[in-house]
Design a protein around this nucleic acid. Structure first.
Lengths: 281, 281
DNA sequence: GCCTATCCGAAAATAATTTTCAAATAAGCT
DNA sequence: AGCTTATTTGAAAATTATTTTCGGATAGGC
């Protein structure tokens, strides 16, 4: 089902002044799906029939349908306040599992809101034209780095994860233009990662940073900053969720890259699969 | 906000016969939020005022509120069939991101449905009383193993990831009762992992298996089987999503374990955090 | 300046919802 | 049992919400 936003996009050119007023109200209202047509028309300084014409134009069959669509899309990523989703030590294990799922959703929503799609497209382009792709991270971010490298390797083998700070420094010191570094750090303040990123940048490498806060040291250095906003609190589970989001974001880039590479790319993937299958019985 | 189900639970005792009919209709209808009161009353063989009384009793202020609540809760874990969520190469990058999120949710739902909470509790107990915990995996599952080991290490340091098959075999051959092995494999047919699991079991280790299909070789060997159901298809993205679910499941066990350990456990966590913080500026 | 197409809202028509009220039934009490 | 009271229910009326009809206004083209 097309989303409300998508429908607006589609009809953007044919929208009248009056209709835009209504859309604006729907966009700024916190709970547009609770508005009656009368209220909506009032707020928008517009008549009811105009509202009817708008939702028809957007492809809905009734005002109810529009409201339901808005309601569903607003919770596409549910909006329960993170506090409600706090994991308690007395929760049973199924509840914990679900709560982590909800925290993931919440973080996805935050991330999507701040996401810069152009930057992500740029990252994909950089990957494709790169000499060599280095994934840099320590600790938990190191395993994320490894996971990414593993995946991107399937698209052609120019990708490597470096988790050890010494190795990172050595690799960085030999980098040059055309190399791409993805520095991963939840906190954005991991000293070694910052240090290595500096060296890499000085040597002309393109620096992509994945972190969860734009005001953090590492973020400032990035040629291309990818924010994986977790929840704002300092909860224990934030780092875990943040890592899931990091992985999701890299999965997205991977998927996009595979799509851009098209035929040629999928051939590579199938070759990798075949190689792996031979290791199963 | 309380969920519809929750509200029903709360009022279960005071629900009348008529009201139960309405609830039943709401539960069996695919899109209850599109029903008018008239239709709902008709389907339930009940009068409109009864519907009004029901939603009042449940704490909603209007029929619209009830419908909105139903609409939102129905998408909490989206209903869309996985096919609808298929990623297309022409999708823009934001859409891909959202679709991966939805696939994750869908897989979460499937996993939750099949989840055996008792087994998971048992796994936590085994972790707590273990001599040594080994996380075994190859390829992408290897990075999952490493991630898990990293995390569980924070709860006391008896945890290690082994990704190299040779090392795996060596470790396995020296295992004994009291050791716990977590074998991770999406396919459940990774030869080396199966081989190593056998050795470990023969030596008396307790074998926890994380895989995505109960009919798979590895699953049959498990003392404790944790299923991370991904979608049923063979889509490219399944492995990625499956890995996210694996991580989520292990996060759950970790969280539960920390909760069970309580005071003592969190002290350990804080010690680990302190050690890591020293590496930031 | 005139014609036409598009856009918009007033008012009427229809549909949905809520309220009022009284009948029916069940539950308690003597 | 017989009476009283509380609870449950729906018919009909009242209120609100939505949709349709229709005609006036505006703008663009010729």
């Amino acid at each position: 089902m097309k989303s409300f936003k998508h429908r607006i996009q589609e009809n953007k050119k044919s929208l009248t002044n009056t209709e835009n007023k209504i859309i604006h109200q729907l966009e700024i209202h916190k709970k547009p799906f609770l508005l009656s047509m009368n209220e909506l028309a009032g707020l928008s300084q517009v008549s009811e029939p105009s509202v009817v014409r708008l939702y028809r134009k957007l492809g809905y069959n009734s005002y109810q349908e529009l409201k339901v669509a808005l309601a569903q899309e607003q919770t596409e990523y549910p909006q329960e306040s993170p506090a409600l989703v706090d994991i308690l030590s007395e929760d049973d294990i199924g509840t914990m599992f679900e709560k982590i799922g909800k925290q993931y959703l919440h973080a996805m929503k935050l991330t999507k809101a701040k996401m810069n799609e152009d930057k992500m497209e740029e990252a994909v382009d950089r990957f494709i034209s790169a000499n060599q792709i280095y994934f840099i991270g320590q600790g938990l971010s190191g395993t994320v780095a490894e996971d990414c490298a593993h995946k991107f390797m399937r698209l052609g083998g120019k990708s490597i994860a470096v988790k050890d700070p010494h190795y990172q420094a050595i690799y960085a010191s030999h980098m040059s233009e055309g190399d791409v570094v993805i520095a991963i750090s939840h906190s954005g303040e991991t000293i070694d990662t910052i240090h290595v990123s500096e060296i890499a940048k000085n040597n002309g490498a393109f620096l992509i940073v994945i972190t969860s806060n734009e005001n953090v040291s590492l973020a400032g250095m990035a040629d291309c900053l990818l924010l994986t906003q977790a929840n704002e609190t300092n909860r224990q589970s934030d780092a875990m969720v943040s890592r899931l989001i990091q992985l999701t974001m890299m999965d997205t880039l991977y998927t996009k890259m595979a799509a851009v590479l098209g035929e040629e790319g999928t051939k590579q993937i199938n070759l990798s699969r075949l190689a792996v299958t031979r290791m199963k019985k």
